[in-house]
Simulated assay, not measured.
Amino acid sequence: MSKLYFTEEHDLFRESLRDFLKKEVVPHIEKWEETGQIERFIWKKFGDMGYFGLATPEAYGGLDLDLFYTVILLEEMQRINSGGFSAAIWAHAYLAMTHLNKEGNHEQKEKYLTPSALGDKIGCLCITEPFGGSDVAGMRTTAVKKGDTYVINGSKTFITNGVYSDYLIVAAKTKPELGNKGISIFVMDRDTKGISATKLDKLGWRASDTGEIAFDNVEIPAENLMGEENQGFPYIMQHFALERLIMGINAHARAEYALEYAKQYMSERTAFGRTIDKFQALRHTYADCETQMEICKQFNYYVAKRLDMGDYVVKEATMSKLQSTKMADDVIYQCLQFLGGYGYMEEYPLARMSRDSRLGPIGGGTSEILREIIAKMVIDDKDYKPAT
Protein backbone atom coordinates (compact mmCIF):
# COMPACT_ATOMS: atom_id res chain seq x y z
CA MET A 1 0.00 0.00 0.00
CA SER A 2 1.09 3.57 -0.67
CA LYS A 3 2.94 5.08 2.28
CA LEU A 4 1.68 8.47 1.11
CA TYR A 5 -1.70 7.64 2.59
CA PHE A 6 -1.51 4.44 4.66
CA THR A 7 0.41 3.92 7.89
CA GLU A 8 1.44 0.65 9.48
CA GLU A 9 -1.70 0.90 11.64
CA HIS A 10 -3.81 1.17 8.48
CA ASP A 11 -2.14 -1.93 7.06
CA LEU A 12 -2.79 -3.92 10.24
CA PHE A 13 -6.41 -2.81 10.18
CA ARG A 14 -6.71 -4.00 6.58
CA GLU A 15 -5.31 -7.42 7.48
CA SER A 16 -7.67 -7.90 10.42
CA LEU A 17 -10.67 -6.65 8.42
CA ARG A 18 -9.89 -8.97 5.51
CA ASP A 19 -9.67 -11.89 7.92
CA PHE A 20 -12.96 -10.88 9.57
CA LEU A 21 -14.78 -10.65 6.23
CA LYS A 22 -13.41 -14.00 5.11
CA LYS A 23 -14.50 -15.77 8.30
CA GLU A 24 -17.72 -13.98 9.22
CA VAL A 25 -19.22 -12.68 5.97
CA VAL A 26 -18.10 -14.73 2.96
CA PRO A 27 -19.73 -18.01 4.16
CA HIS A 28 -23.14 -16.29 4.15
CA ILE A 29 -22.95 -14.22 0.95
CA GLU A 30 -24.61 -16.76 -1.35
CA LYS A 31 -27.56 -17.12 1.01
CA TRP A 32 -28.01 -13.35 1.30
CA GLU A 33 -27.76 -12.93 -2.47
CA GLU A 34 -30.55 -15.50 -2.88
CA THR A 35 -32.86 -14.20 -0.15
CA GLY A 36 -32.20 -10.48 -0.54
CA GLN A 37 -31.98 -10.17 3.23
CA ILE A 38 -28.83 -9.74 5.29
CA GLU A 39 -29.23 -11.44 8.66
CA ARG A 40 -29.10 -9.20 11.72
CA PHE A 41 -26.28 -11.05 13.46
CA ILE A 42 -23.69 -9.66 11.07
CA TRP A 43 -24.73 -6.08 11.76
CA LYS A 44 -24.07 -6.63 15.43
CA LYS A 45 -20.70 -8.21 14.69
CA PHE A 46 -19.73 -5.20 12.55
CA GLY A 47 -20.76 -2.96 15.42
CA ASP A 48 -18.85 -4.96 18.00
CA MET A 49 -15.70 -4.71 15.83
CA GLY A 50 -16.10 -0.93 15.57
CA TYR A 51 -16.53 -0.95 11.79
CA PHE A 52 -19.66 1.21 11.89
CA GLY A 53 -17.98 3.78 14.10
CA LEU A 54 -14.82 4.49 12.14
CA ALA A 55 -15.86 8.09 11.44
CA THR A 56 -18.14 8.52 14.47
CA PRO A 57 -17.09 10.55 17.56
CA GLU A 58 -16.04 8.52 20.58
CA ALA A 59 -18.80 10.18 22.64
CA TYR A 60 -21.35 8.28 20.54
CA GLY A 61 -19.72 4.86 20.45
CA GLY A 62 -17.31 5.50 17.58
CA LEU A 63 -13.57 5.51 17.04
CA ASP A 64 -13.21 8.91 15.30
CA LEU A 65 -10.50 7.67 12.93
CA ASP A 66 -9.17 9.28 9.76
CA LEU A 67 -10.90 8.74 6.42
CA PHE A 68 -8.40 6.16 5.18
CA TYR A 69 -9.82 3.59 7.58
CA THR A 70 -13.08 4.10 5.71
CA VAL A 71 -11.23 3.74 2.40
CA ILE A 72 -9.89 0.38 3.60
CA LEU A 73 -13.34 -0.75 4.72
CA LEU A 74 -14.81 0.10 1.32
CA GLU A 75 -11.98 -1.54 -0.63
CA GLU A 76 -12.02 -4.76 1.33
CA MET A 77 -15.78 -5.16 1.11
CA GLN A 78 -15.55 -5.06 -2.69
CA ARG A 79 -13.25 -8.09 -2.58
CA ILE A 80 -16.03 -10.35 -1.24
CA ASN A 81 -17.99 -9.70 -4.44
CA SER A 82 -21.41 -8.70 -3.15
CA GLY A 83 -22.26 -5.18 -4.19
CA GLY A 84 -25.52 -5.49 -2.29
CA PHE A 85 -23.90 -6.39 1.02
CA SER A 86 -21.35 -3.64 0.62
CA ALA A 87 -24.04 -1.09 -0.25
CA ALA A 88 -26.16 -2.01 2.78
CA ILE A 89 -23.19 -1.50 5.08
CA TRP A 90 -21.96 1.81 3.68
CA ALA A 91 -25.47 3.23 3.17
CA HIS A 92 -26.01 2.74 6.90
CA ALA A 93 -22.60 3.97 8.02
CA TYR A 94 -22.02 6.82 5.58
CA LEU A 95 -25.46 7.99 4.45
CA ALA A 96 -27.79 7.64 7.43
CA MET A 97 -25.10 7.96 10.11
CA THR A 98 -23.40 10.90 8.38
CA HIS A 99 -26.58 12.96 8.57
CA LEU A 100 -27.08 11.98 12.20
CA ASN A 101 -23.51 12.92 13.03
CA LYS A 102 -23.60 16.26 11.23
CA GLU A 103 -27.18 17.48 11.72
CA GLY A 104 -28.43 15.51 14.70
CA ASN A 105 -28.64 17.09 18.15
CA HIS A 106 -27.35 15.39 21.28
CA GLU A 107 -30.63 13.63 22.04
CA GLN A 108 -30.98 12.37 18.45
CA LYS A 109 -27.42 11.12 18.47
CA GLU A 110 -27.90 9.27 21.74
CA LYS A 111 -31.10 7.65 20.47
CA TYR A 112 -29.97 6.76 16.94
CA LEU A 113 -26.24 7.36 16.32
CA THR A 114 -24.83 5.43 19.28
CA PRO A 115 -26.88 2.25 18.61
CA SER A 116 -26.03 2.64 14.91
CA ALA A 117 -22.32 2.59 15.70
CA LEU A 118 -22.84 -0.46 17.91
CA GLY A 119 -24.79 -2.35 15.25
CA ASP A 120 -28.02 -2.34 17.27
CA LYS A 121 -29.95 -0.13 14.85
CA ILE A 122 -29.88 0.08 11.05
CA GLY A 123 -30.62 3.30 9.20
CA CYS A 124 -31.49 4.39 5.68
CA LEU A 125 -31.45 7.72 3.87
CA CYS A 126 -34.60 8.66 1.94
CA ILE A 127 -34.11 11.34 -0.70
CA THR A 128 -34.83 9.91 -4.18
CA GLU A 129 -38.48 9.92 -5.27
CA PRO A 130 -40.41 8.06 -7.98
CA PHE A 131 -40.95 11.29 -9.92
CA GLY A 132 -37.39 12.55 -9.75
CA GLY A 133 -34.03 11.01 -8.89
CA SER A 134 -31.18 13.48 -9.29
CA ASP A 135 -33.62 16.42 -9.21
CA VAL A 136 -33.55 16.76 -5.43
CA ALA A 137 -35.14 20.21 -5.55
CA GLY A 138 -38.15 18.73 -7.36
CA MET A 139 -39.13 16.37 -4.54
CA ARG A 140 -42.84 16.21 -3.70
CA THR A 141 -42.81 14.72 -0.21
CA THR A 142 -44.11 17.30 2.27
CA ALA A 143 -43.82 17.89 6.00
CA VAL A 144 -46.56 20.15 7.36
CA LYS A 145 -46.13 21.66 10.83
CA LYS A 146 -49.12 20.89 13.05
CA GLY A 147 -48.69 22.15 16.58
CA ASP A 148 -45.73 20.30 18.08
CA THR A 149 -45.69 17.69 15.30
CA TYR A 150 -44.98 17.38 11.59
CA VAL A 151 -47.23 15.40 9.24
CA ILE A 152 -45.33 13.69 6.41
CA ASN A 153 -46.92 12.68 3.10
CA GLY A 154 -45.20 11.40 -0.04
CA SER A 155 -42.98 8.58 -1.27
CA LYS A 156 -39.33 7.65 -1.78
CA THR A 157 -37.78 4.99 -3.98
CA PHE A 158 -34.52 3.10 -4.64
CA ILE A 159 -33.75 3.34 -0.91
CA THR A 160 -30.96 1.02 0.22
CA ASN A 161 -31.93 -0.61 3.54
CA GLY A 162 -35.40 0.72 2.77
CA VAL A 163 -37.24 -2.40 3.96
CA TYR A 164 -35.41 -3.84 6.96
CA SER A 165 -33.88 -0.73 8.59
CA ASP A 166 -34.96 0.46 12.05
CA TYR A 167 -35.07 4.18 11.35
CA LEU A 168 -35.21 6.52 8.36
CA ILE A 169 -33.55 9.86 7.61
CA VAL A 170 -36.12 11.58 5.39
CA ALA A 171 -35.96 14.73 3.27
CA ALA A 172 -39.28 16.56 2.83
CA LYS A 173 -40.48 20.00 1.83
CA THR A 174 -41.54 22.15 4.77
CA LYS A 175 -42.08 25.14 2.49
CA PRO A 176 -42.81 23.82 -1.03
CA GLU A 177 -43.19 27.33 -2.42
CA LEU A 178 -39.48 27.97 -1.75
CA GLY A 179 -38.28 25.08 -3.95
CA ASN A 180 -34.88 23.83 -2.84
CA LYS A 181 -34.80 26.46 -0.10
CA GLY A 182 -37.78 24.81 1.59
CA ILE A 183 -36.44 21.29 2.27
CA SER A 184 -35.89 19.90 5.77
CA ILE A 185 -34.45 16.66 7.18
CA PHE A 186 -36.18 14.41 9.72
CA VAL A 187 -35.41 11.20 11.57
CA MET A 188 -38.22 8.73 12.27
CA ASP A 189 -38.68 5.20 13.54
CA ARG A 190 -39.64 2.45 11.12
CA ASP A 191 -42.66 1.39 13.13
CA THR A 192 -44.24 4.87 13.04
CA LYS A 193 -47.86 4.63 11.90
CA GLY A 194 -48.32 5.41 8.19
CA ILE A 195 -44.90 4.20 6.97
CA SER A 196 -44.96 1.27 4.53
CA ALA A 197 -42.28 -0.23 2.32
CA THR A 198 -42.26 -2.38 -0.82
CA LYS A 199 -39.18 -4.38 -1.75
CA LEU A 200 -37.89 -3.81 -5.31
CA ASP A 201 -36.52 -6.54 -7.59
CA LYS A 202 -33.17 -5.48 -9.05
CA LEU A 203 -30.67 -6.48 -11.72
CA GLY A 204 -27.81 -6.47 -9.21
CA TRP A 205 -27.03 -5.59 -5.59
CA ARG A 206 -29.34 -8.49 -4.83
CA ALA A 207 -28.25 -9.03 -1.21
CA SER A 208 -29.46 -5.59 -0.18
CA ASP A 209 -33.05 -4.59 0.47
CA THR A 210 -33.88 -1.73 -1.88
CA GLY A 211 -37.31 -0.34 -1.18
CA GLU A 212 -40.00 2.06 -2.24
CA ILE A 213 -41.37 3.80 0.85
CA ALA A 214 -44.75 5.49 1.28
CA PHE A 215 -45.61 8.09 3.93
CA ASP A 216 -49.35 8.34 4.54
CA ASN A 217 -50.12 11.08 7.10
CA VAL A 218 -47.10 10.07 9.16
CA GLU A 219 -47.13 12.16 12.32
CA ILE A 220 -43.80 12.67 14.11
CA PRO A 221 -42.74 14.93 16.99
CA ALA A 222 -41.34 18.32 15.98
CA GLU A 223 -38.13 17.38 17.82
CA ASN A 224 -37.45 14.83 15.05
CA LEU A 225 -36.38 17.73 12.82
CA MET A 226 -32.64 17.49 12.20
CA GLY A 227 -30.66 20.71 12.00
CA GLU A 228 -32.50 23.85 10.98
CA GLU A 229 -35.82 23.92 9.18
CA ASN A 230 -35.53 24.59 5.44
CA GLN A 231 -31.78 23.92 5.43
CA GLY A 232 -32.08 20.36 4.13
CA PHE A 233 -30.89 21.06 0.59
CA PRO A 234 -27.42 22.38 1.55
CA TYR A 235 -27.10 19.51 4.04
CA ILE A 236 -27.83 17.00 1.27
CA MET A 237 -25.52 18.67 -1.22
CA GLN A 238 -22.70 18.83 1.29
CA HIS A 239 -22.84 15.10 1.98
CA PHE A 240 -23.09 14.18 -1.70
CA ALA A 241 -19.33 14.73 -1.92
CA LEU A 242 -18.68 11.87 0.52
CA GLU A 243 -21.28 9.63 -1.13
CA ARG A 244 -19.80 10.16 -4.59
CA LEU A 245 -16.25 9.60 -3.38
CA ILE A 246 -17.42 6.38 -1.70
CA MET A 247 -18.86 5.18 -5.00
CA GLY A 248 -15.63 6.15 -6.77
CA ILE A 249 -13.58 4.17 -4.25
CA ASN A 250 -15.95 1.21 -4.53
CA ALA A 251 -15.46 1.34 -8.31
CA HIS A 252 -11.68 1.29 -8.33
CA ALA A 253 -11.68 -1.45 -5.69
CA ARG A 254 -13.99 -3.79 -7.60
CA ALA A 255 -12.04 -3.16 -10.80
CA GLU A 256 -8.82 -3.99 -8.98
CA TYR A 257 -10.32 -7.21 -7.65
CA ALA A 258 -11.61 -8.14 -11.12
CA LEU A 259 -8.14 -7.60 -12.56
CA GLU A 260 -6.50 -9.72 -9.86
CA TYR A 261 -8.94 -12.53 -10.55
CA ALA A 262 -8.52 -12.28 -14.32
CA LYS A 263 -4.72 -12.27 -14.05
CA GLN A 264 -4.76 -15.43 -11.97
CA TYR A 265 -7.16 -17.10 -14.42
CA MET A 266 -5.06 -16.08 -17.44
CA SER A 267 -1.92 -17.49 -15.82
CA GLU A 268 -3.61 -20.92 -15.55
CA ARG A 269 -5.76 -21.10 -18.69
CA THR A 270 -3.95 -22.61 -21.67
CA ALA A 271 -4.67 -22.29 -25.38
CA PHE A 272 -2.50 -23.32 -28.34
CA GLY A 273 0.14 -24.73 -26.03
CA ARG A 274 0.67 -21.78 -23.67
CA THR A 275 -1.10 -19.81 -20.97
CA ILE A 276 -3.25 -17.04 -22.38
CA ASP A 277 -1.40 -14.34 -20.43
CA LYS A 278 1.38 -14.79 -22.98
CA PHE A 279 -0.74 -13.59 -25.93
CA GLN A 280 0.11 -10.03 -26.81
CA ALA A 281 -3.45 -8.94 -27.58
CA LEU A 282 -4.59 -9.99 -24.11
CA ARG A 283 -1.47 -8.72 -22.35
CA HIS A 284 -1.80 -5.25 -23.85
CA THR A 285 -5.52 -5.05 -23.14
CA TYR A 286 -4.83 -6.08 -19.56
CA ALA A 287 -2.12 -3.41 -19.32
CA ASP A 288 -4.62 -0.77 -20.49
CA CYS A 289 -7.14 -1.90 -17.89
CA GLU A 290 -4.58 -1.86 -15.10
CA THR A 291 -3.51 1.64 -16.11
CA GLN A 292 -7.07 2.99 -16.09
CA MET A 293 -7.74 1.45 -12.69
CA GLU A 294 -4.54 2.77 -11.12
CA ILE A 295 -5.14 6.32 -12.34
CA CYS A 296 -8.61 6.34 -10.77
CA LYS A 297 -7.33 4.73 -7.59
CA GLN A 298 -4.61 7.31 -7.04
CA PHE A 299 -6.96 10.20 -7.81
CA ASN A 300 -9.49 8.81 -5.31
CA TYR A 301 -6.80 8.61 -2.63
CA TYR A 302 -5.89 12.24 -3.33
CA VAL A 303 -9.52 13.35 -3.02
CA ALA A 304 -9.95 11.31 0.17
CA LYS A 305 -6.89 13.01 1.65
CA ARG A 306 -8.25 16.46 0.84
CA LEU A 307 -11.69 15.61 2.23
CA ASP A 308 -10.05 14.29 5.40
CA MET A 309 -8.22 17.62 5.72
CA GLY A 310 -11.54 19.46 5.62
CA ASP A 311 -11.45 20.69 2.03
CA TYR A 312 -14.77 21.06 0.19
CA VAL A 313 -14.16 18.66 -2.69
CA VAL A 314 -17.52 18.65 -4.47
CA LYS A 315 -15.90 18.99 -7.90
CA GLU A 316 -13.23 16.37 -7.32
CA ALA A 317 -15.63 13.88 -5.69
CA THR A 318 -18.02 14.30 -8.61
CA MET A 319 -15.15 13.62 -11.01
CA SER A 320 -14.17 10.60 -8.93
CA LYS A 321 -17.56 8.97 -9.26
CA LEU A 322 -18.00 9.90 -12.92
CA GLN A 323 -14.67 8.52 -14.10
CA SER A 324 -14.19 5.63 -11.68
CA THR A 325 -17.62 4.04 -12.25
CA LYS A 326 -17.17 4.23 -16.03
CA MET A 327 -13.71 2.73 -15.68
CA ALA A 328 -15.01 -0.10 -13.48
CA ASP A 329 -17.73 -1.01 -15.98
CA ASP A 330 -15.20 -1.03 -18.83
CA VAL A 331 -12.57 -3.00 -16.91
CA ILE A 332 -15.02 -5.59 -15.56
CA TYR A 333 -16.53 -6.03 -19.03
CA GLN A 334 -13.05 -6.77 -20.35
CA CYS A 335 -12.16 -9.08 -17.45
CA LEU A 336 -15.28 -11.11 -18.18
CA GLN A 337 -14.08 -11.34 -21.78
CA PHE A 338 -10.68 -12.62 -20.61
CA LEU A 339 -12.50 -15.58 -19.05
CA GLY A 340 -14.40 -16.33 -22.27
CA GLY A 341 -17.42 -18.56 -21.74
CA TYR A 342 -16.55 -19.09 -18.09
CA GLY A 343 -16.91 -15.37 -17.43
CA TYR A 344 -20.60 -15.71 -18.32
CA MET A 345 -21.15 -18.51 -15.80
CA GLU A 346 -22.65 -17.73 -12.38
CA GLU A 347 -20.10 -19.91 -10.58
CA TYR A 348 -17.38 -17.42 -11.57
CA PRO A 349 -17.35 -13.97 -9.93
CA LEU A 350 -17.43 -11.80 -13.06
CA ALA A 351 -21.12 -12.44 -13.81
CA ARG A 352 -22.33 -10.99 -10.50
CA MET A 353 -19.68 -8.30 -10.56
CA SER A 354 -20.89 -7.12 -13.97
CA ARG A 355 -24.46 -6.77 -12.69
CA ASP A 356 -23.46 -5.08 -9.47
CA SER A 357 -21.08 -2.66 -11.18
CA ARG A 358 -23.73 -1.35 -13.55
CA LEU A 359 -25.38 0.65 -10.79
CA GLY A 360 -22.21 2.71 -10.38
CA PRO A 361 -23.00 5.25 -13.13
CA ILE A 362 -26.63 5.50 -11.93
CA GLY A 363 -26.84 5.65 -8.13
CA GLY A 364 -25.83 8.76 -6.18
CA GLY A 365 -26.34 10.94 -9.25
CA THR A 366 -26.29 9.66 -12.81
CA SER A 367 -23.23 10.24 -14.96
CA GLU A 368 -25.26 12.67 -17.08
CA ILE A 369 -26.09 14.79 -14.02
CA LEU A 370 -22.49 14.63 -12.80
CA ARG A 371 -21.20 15.93 -16.12
CA GLU A 372 -23.55 18.89 -15.87
CA ILE A 373 -22.41 19.63 -12.30
CA ILE A 374 -18.78 19.56 -13.43
CA ALA A 375 -19.59 21.68 -16.49
CA LYS A 376 -21.24 24.31 -14.28
CA MET A 377 -18.13 24.46 -12.12
CA VAL A 378 -15.45 24.46 -14.82
CA ILE A 379 -17.29 26.38 -17.58
CA ASP A 380 -19.82 28.58 -15.79
CA ASP A 381 -17.61 29.15 -12.71
CA LYS A 382 -20.37 27.93 -10.42
CA ASP A 383 -19.07 27.86 -6.86
CA TYR A 384 -20.83 25.41 -4.54
CA LYS A 385 -20.56 26.36 -0.87
CA PRO A 386 -20.74 24.10 2.18
CA ALA A 387 -23.71 24.37 4.53
CA THR A 388 -23.10 26.85 7.33
Rank of each mutant, 00 (worst) to 15 (best):
K202S: 04
L203Y: 01
R206W: 00
R206T: 14
A207M: 00
A207Q: 00
S208M: 07
D209A: 11
D209R: 13
D209F: 02
T210D: 10
G211H: 09
E212H: 14
I213F: 07
I213L: 15
I213D: 05
F215H: 04
F215R: 02
D216V: 04
N217F: 13
N217C: 14
E219P: 02
I220D: 01
I220L: 02
P221G: 12
A222R: 01
L225W: 08
M226S: 05
M226I: 04
E229M: 08
E229C: 08
N230E: 12
N230G: 05
N230F: 06
N230T: 10
N230S: 11
N230Y: 04
N230P: 04
N230K: 04
Q231C: 09
Q231I: 03
Q231H: 10
G232K: 04
G232M: 07
F233K: 01
P234R: 07
Y235Q: 10
Y235M: 10
Y235H: 10
Y235I: 11
M237C: 07
M237V: 10
M237Q: 12
M237D: 08
M237R: 15
Q238D: 10
H239M: 13
H239R: 08
H239A: 05
A241L: 05
A241D: 03
R244Y: 01
R244Q: 15
I246M: 09
I246F: 01
G248P: 04
G248E: 00
N250I: 11
N250Q: 13
A251Y: 01
H252W: 15
H252P: 00
R254K: 11
A255H: 02
A255T: 05
E256Q: 13
E256A: 11
E256R: 14
Y257H: 12
Y257C: 06
A258L: 01
L259M: 12
L259W: 03
E260D: 09
A262E: 01
K263F: 06
Q264N: 14
E268F: 00
R269M: 14
T270N: 09
A271Q: 12
F272Q: 05
F272R: 04
R274M: 13
R274E: 10
I276V: 15
I276N: 13
I276T: 15
D277Q: 03
D277V: 06
D277H: 05
F279S: 06
Q280G: 15
A281Y: 13
A281H: 14
L282F: 13
R283F: 07
H284Y: 08
T285M: 03
T285L: 08
T285N: 12
Y286E: 09
A287G: 04
D288R: 13
D288G: 06
C289D: 09
E290Y: 08
T291N: 12
T291Y: 10
Q292E: 11
M293Q: 15
M293R: 15
E294Y: 12
E294C: 06
I295C: 03
K297L: 13
Q298F: 02
N300I: 02
N300C: 15
Y301D: 01
Y302H: 14
V303K: 02
A304V: 11
A304R: 12
K305N: 11
R306K: 15
R306Q: 13
L307Q: 09
M309E: 09
